[in-house]
C-alpha cells in the first residue's frame, strides 16, 4: 500500500502527478547479484583445482568425484553442474532470472521487450526446466556428502572443536537442506500428484495418509522456498570464499572452543 505523502509536500501545491515507482530496482539488484555469483563460480571452478583446506571441503568441490578418478584439472566439474542445474531449473530461480535477466517481465504490469516471439518454457533450453525433479534427486545425493563434510568440519587433527569455518559449514548445510526439501518438485512427489489422500475404503477411510502429512509439511516449507533459495546461495558463497581465502593464506580460521 502506498504511504501517504508527508504533510509539507501535500500542501506545497497542486496534487502531484503520477508517482514514479522504482520498478527497476528489484530486478537490477537480482541481476547484479546473480551475475556476480555466476562470475565468481566460473572463476572458482575454472581456475582452481583444490577446494580442501584441512578438514574443510568447499561445497563447490564436494563430493570430490574428480579426485576419486584422478583428475588433475577442472576437478570440480564432475559434480558442480548438479547444484548449478538444480538451481537453474528451480521454480523460484526461474521467477527471479526471468524477471531480472530476460525482463519477461521485469516487473508486474509494466512494459517488457516484445521484439522476439515469446515462447515461455515451451522451447529448448527453457523446456528442460521440466527435468527439475531429476536434478533434485541428484542434489539430494550431493547434500548427503555435504552433511558428511559438515560433520567432518568439526573434527580437526587434535579432535573435536568448533571453529568459525565449522559453524559456517553447519549453517550452509541447514540452509541447503531447507532449500532442497521445500522444493516444488519434491512437494509434487510426496503427495501433490494425488487428488485424494483419504479416499481409501475400509477402516482407513477418511484418515490422513503419511503422504498427506508430508505434503502438508512440505507445502508449509514451500512457502519460504524463495527465502531458503537466497539464504543458501549466500551461505554457499560465503563458505566457499572462506575456504578459498584459507587456502590462499589470506585469512586464518578462528577457533571458538
Amino acid at each position: 500500500m502506498a504511504q501517504p505523502l508527508p504533510r509539507e509536500t501535500r500542501n506545497a501545491g497542486p496534487a502531484r502527478r503520477q508517482r514514479a515507482p522504482r520498478l527497476w530496482l528489484e530486478p537490477t539488484v537480482t541481476a547484479v547479484v546473480f551475475g556476480l555469483f555466476v562470475l565468481y563460480s566460473l572463476w572458482e571452478v575454472f581456475f582452481h583445482n583444490n577446494g580442501v583446506y584441512g578438514n574443510y571441503v568447499s561445497p563447490f568441490f564436494s563430493p570430490q568425484v574428480g579426485r576419486w578418478f584422478g583428475m588433475k584439472s577442472f576437478i570440480a566439474f564432475p559434480v558442480v553442474w548438479i547444484p548449478f542445474l538444480f538451481r537453474g531449473t528451480c521454480y523460484y530461480y526461474r521467477k527471479e532470472y526471468n524477471r531480472a535477466w530476460f525482463w519477461h517481465p521485469s516487473a508486474c504490469a509494466s512494459p517488457e521487450p516484445t521484439g522476439r516471439r515469446y515462447t515461455g518454457e515451451s522451447r529448448f533450453p527453457f523446456s528442460w526446466t521440466n527435468l527439475h525433479r531429476y536434478f533434485w534427486y541428484l542434489a539430494v545425493i550431493v547434500l548427503i556428502f555435504l552433511w558428511k563434510d559438515t560433520v567432518q568440519a568439526f573434527f580437526f587433527t587434535h579432535g573435536f572443536a568448533v571453529h568459525l569455518g565449522s559453524l559456517l559449514m553447519l549453517v550452509n548445510a541447514i540452509f541447503l537442506t531447507l532449500y532442497t526439501f521445500s522444493c516444488h518438485a519434491f512437494r509434487h512427489l510426496v503427495g501433490g500428484g494425488k487428488d485424494c489422500n483419504s479416499c481409501a475404503f475400509g477402516p482407513n477411510a477418511g484418515k490422513a495418509t503419511t503422504s498427506y502429512t508430508l505434503w502438508t509439511k512440505v507445502s508449509r516449507w514451500n512457502q519460504r522456498h524463495g527465502s531458503w533459495a537466497w539464504a543458501s546461495l549466500f551461505s554457499v558463497w560465503v563458505v566457499d570464499l572462506y575456504v578459498r581465502l584459507l587456502i590462499m593464506g589470506v585469512i586464518h580460521d578462528v577457533r571458538f572452543f
Partner: peptide, 15 residues
Amino acid sequence: AGLPMCNVTRCCVEV
C-alpha cells in the same frame, strides 16, 4: 491451454 507459456514469474499471485 498453453501451460508451458507460463514462466512462473508470479505476477498473477500479486494481484
